[in-house]
Amino acid sequence: MRLEAVGRRYGARGPWVLRGVDLDVPGGQVLRVEGANGSGKSTVLRILAGIDRPTTGRVSGRPRTAYVPERFPPALPFDAHGYLVHLGRVHGLGGRTAARRAERWLECFGIAGYARTPLAQLSKGTCQKVAVAQALVAEPELLVLDEAWTGLDEDARAVLDDAVRARSAAGGTVVFVDHDPRRLAADTTAAHRVQDARLVPVPPDAAGGPRVVIEATGGGVPPAGLAYEPAAPGTLQVTVPAAESDAVLRRLLAAAPPWHIRSVRPAQPPTEPA
C-alpha cells in the first residue's frame, strides 16, 4: 500500500492537517504513528483505513481493511453477537463463518456471557472489546488501531497485542496509535511522527543499542521488508536491533514454508577507528 503526496484539510479554506505525505506500507509491517494531541495522527489513520479520502494526492493498493476507533459509543440497536455477525458479513464473510468467529472473539475477550446483551447495556470497556472484535473477526490484511487499547483491561490488552502479532505474522499490516510508548515496542517495525502536517520517520530506539545476528535456513521466500544478507544457498543472515529480534524470529517461523532458525547470536559491535 502506498500514499503519494497526500494532503488533507477539512473545509475548503481550513488549514492543512496533512501535506505532501509519501508513505510505503509493505505487508507484514507493524507501523506506529506518533504525534502531539491534535497533530493529525487520527487523520493519517483515517486516510490509511480509507474512511477519509485525501484532499490531494492518492492512495493506492489498499488491501482488505478493518478499523478500531478509540471510543465506541453503544448507540446501536444490536446485541454484541448480532453486531459482530453483521460487521463480519460487511467485511465479506459468509454468515456461518462470521457467527463462528464472532463467538470465538467474544470468548477470547471473556465476554461470551454478554453475547446476547444489547450494546446499549454494556459497560464502556465491554463495548470497546466488541469494537476490537469487530475488526479481528474480519482477519483483515490491514488493521488500523486508533488508540484501540484505551478502556480495555489488562487481559484484553494482551489479547489485542497477540492478535496484532498474529496479523503481522500472517503477512498483514498493522498501523497503530497509542499513548503508551512501550506498546508493541518489540514488534514495531517502523515508526512515523506527525509534525507540522508532515509525516517524519522516527529512527528506531534500538538503532544504537545492541544488535543480534539471526541465521536461518529454508527453501521459501524471505518475509517481505526484511533486510537480509544471503549467505550459503538456502540460508539467510539478518542483523537486527536486539529489541526487534523477537518480531523477526516470529515472522521467520510463521512464514510459509517456515524458516528453521540455526542460530541467534550477539553481533560484534562496530570496531572503533584506531
Partner: peptide, 16 residues
Amino acid sequence: AEPPAARACVAAATGP
C-alpha cells in the same frame, strides 16, 4: 443512524 465511530468501522470495510 450510526454514531461516527461505528460509521468509521463500516467505512473502513466497504469504503465510505
